[in-house]
């Protein structure tokens, strides 16, 4: 009975799929939407709001790329991925860009064949524990039951850390952040470990965030960044420089508020090159001149995105820390637009 529906759908899919083409940029333009892989839901980074619209810090990157390429920050199809499916989704072409707080590691870059286009959040793995347990250091966690998200680098870091400090623990593997919450809150595990930003976001969603503390130890480097498939350098360049444009915009003081004014021309050659009033940077990327203007307008520059989604005035309340501009003691350092 219903088989015909599927045959129909398959036929339709077959017709619309058309001839495969190598360039992701052309695919995206032809499709009219950007397929962007995000988490299944981590408040502040990528989560659907009450109206079902995705918002968050990673979502901002997706929207900026869509705005730069397609001129429309809403022309993004968000594909929720888990630790397990994210790499296959990217490798098989289901998504064009993966912006899912993914740690840049050697083997992912080299062995799995992906290209990290930059780092949008410098993170590290931390531990969260109920205050009532009175633990103040990760070294006191001997014998604790630890909830970890499987398929992430945190799982490996955790094993290394406890091994190095010669303390034992009981791992409880869980698939998604959502599953970890009830386990942790009901006490089925003593500790929850993931990236420090993720811990802050998770804690913000608790009823009584104050009852839980994040331990001071950061046990690993977790540079999180968007990534694309290996081998399509044009597309990689677009993603890389869109991210750089957001970072450079903050450094140069370009915000979504003053961008219209600045885009009509300024005395600063660097801003002019970035915003396309001088030089042909957009053309070199295969885009038009004001690609970066659109990208920055989509959600603001890096600093604005940060403040709006995960900054100190949000429930998540992350300090800039390492993620400040290099001029302010952070690690954010965009190569020059020249």
């Amino acid at each position: 009975m219903n088989r015909i529906v599927i045959l129909g759908a398959m036929t339709a899919a077959g017709l619309s799929a058309g001839v495969a083409s190598a360039a992701t940029l052309d695919d995206v333009k032809a499709r009219g939407t950007l397929n962007c892989g995000v988490t299944t839901g981590l408040v502040g980074f990528a989560a659907p709001n009450a109206n079902g619209e995705w918002e968050g810090f990673d979502v901002g990157v997706c929207r900026a790329v869509a705005a730069a390429v397609l001129g429309d920050p809403t022309a993004v199809e968000f594909v929720p991925t888990t630790g397990k499916t994210r790499f296959t989704a990217l490798a098989s072409g289901e998504i064009d860009l993966l912006a899912r707080n993914t740690t840049w590691t050697f083997s992912r870059d080299v062995d799995l064949g992906f290209e990290f286009v930059g780092i949008n959040y410098y993170d590290g793995q931390g531990f969260m524990i109920p205050k009532e347990l009175g633990v103040s250091s990760a070294k006191e966690l001997d014998g604790a039951t630890v909830c970890i998200q499987t398929g992430t680098t945190t799982e490996l870091n955790l094993a290394d850390y406890f091994r190095k400090n010669n303390i034992s623990y009981e791992p409880v593997p869980i698939e998604t952040n959502a599953e970890a919450q009830p386990l942790y809150l009901e006490g089925a595990c003593d500790v929850y470990t993931t990236d420090a930003s993720g811990l802050a976001a998770t804690r913000a969603a608790f009823e009584n965030p104050g009852d839980h503390v994040v331990l001071p130890e950061i046990i690993s480097k977790e540079p999180l960044g968007p990534l694309v498939r290996h081998g399509d350098n044009e597309w990689g360049d677009i993603a890389r420089w869109t991210l750089n444009a957001l970072i450079a915009a903050e450094e140069l003081g370009v915000t979504s508020a003053n961008i219209d004014e600045l885009a009509s021309g300024t005395n600063s050659p660097e801003i002019n090159r970035l915003l396309g009033t001088e030089g042909t940077l957009g053309e070199m990327l295969g885009l038009d001149a004001d690609w970066a203007v659109r990208a920055i307008k989509a959600g603001g520059n890096y600093g604005e995105l940060f403040e709006k989604n995960i900054g100190e005035n949000t429930p998540i309340g992350l300090a800039r820390g390492l993620n400040a501009q290099w001029t302010e003691g952070g690690l954010l350092y965009s190569p020059p637009f020249r």
């Binding site: 397990k84 790499f87 296959t88 992430t152």
Partner: peptide, 10 residues
Amino acid sequence: GITLNQTGRA
């Protein structure tokens, strides 16, 4: 599960 996730050898 974990091996698949960590190595990407689906």
